[in-house]
Nucleic acid binder design. Sequence first.
DNA 1: CGAATTCCTAGTAAATTAGTAGTATATTTG
DNA 2: CAAATATACTACTAATTTACTAGGAATTCG
Lengths: 148, 148
Amino acid sequence: MLPKKTKYAIKALIALAKVYYDKKPLRISKISETEKIPRKFLETILLELRHQGFVGSKMGVTGGYYLSKHPEEIMLSHIIRATGGPIALLPCVSLNFYETCEECPHEELCSLREVVLEVREASLKILSKTSLTDLILKEKKLIRNVKK
Amino acid sequence: MLPKKTKYAIKALIALAKVYYDKKPLRISKISETEKIPRKFLETILLELRHQGFVGSKMGVTGGYYLSKHPEEIMLSHIIRATGGPIALLPCVSLNFYETCEECPHEELCSLREVVLEVREASLKILSKTSLTDLILKEKKLIRNVKK
DNA sequence: CGAATTCCTAGTAAATTAGTAGTATATTTG
DNA sequence: CAAATATACTACTAATTTACTAGGAATTCG
């Protein structure tokens, strides 16, 4: 399961992506309200996302956050990894959170590892091709289909 | 990530599957040693697997555990679910651990949910077609390839 | 009987996750 | 320049989950 932090990060970034062309920052409190994310928690999440280069910020009374990359460039896999959510089911097949499997005498001979590797590839294939832009377009499509 | 409990359960069941045709039970201590699983922890895991119908047991000095289904019938997805590891990345797309996503006004209109659903389908496709027998055959194949 | 095994409940300890507190610093506006 | 309103940052805390253990009861076989 993805941590809430990751889910919040994704939702916040989608909110920022929606106003990408406005060229003015969005306040934390605004995002917190519309996305129903605990205010203070969101603060730390956005700070971290800034340190990781996803967003920029402006201080002061007209301040807020904005995407520092084009929404097409920000992929779900990037956000998940940046906020601590490993994609793999086991550490022994994780690209970014790898750990040796102590109880395995020979990792390369572990059949479970092979299957879990397959699962990671399949998940990554989807997550690394889905951008913030894709998510916004998808949402529009979903809403259109309901109205019909 | 899958909990260690799940990984231990899978490894233990593979060990039992390997002696399926021996028609005599395998002791906890034996499994614990060969698979390097903490003895007492394994005890509770096997007990749970028995309650869930995966294995049977025999008490007493000649006792131990044995598979109560054919190893071809036991799929990775079954084991993962039985030992508490949800397959989905978010509760709102989990079949077995579903929870409403409170901050979503309309779950069906959530684009993130749609993508995460896709990921679940892709993962499940692999996990629900891989049996204990498959894992054992896979391992044999891996070992053969190394020897060549 | 006694040694070796599983059965079972109830814990505990460690790690992780989720969220908060509080002060410092920057920016705009009157 | 001061007040108001943002973010910046560090360091906590509280809740939950995970990983594992203790210890005695019940069972089986020689």
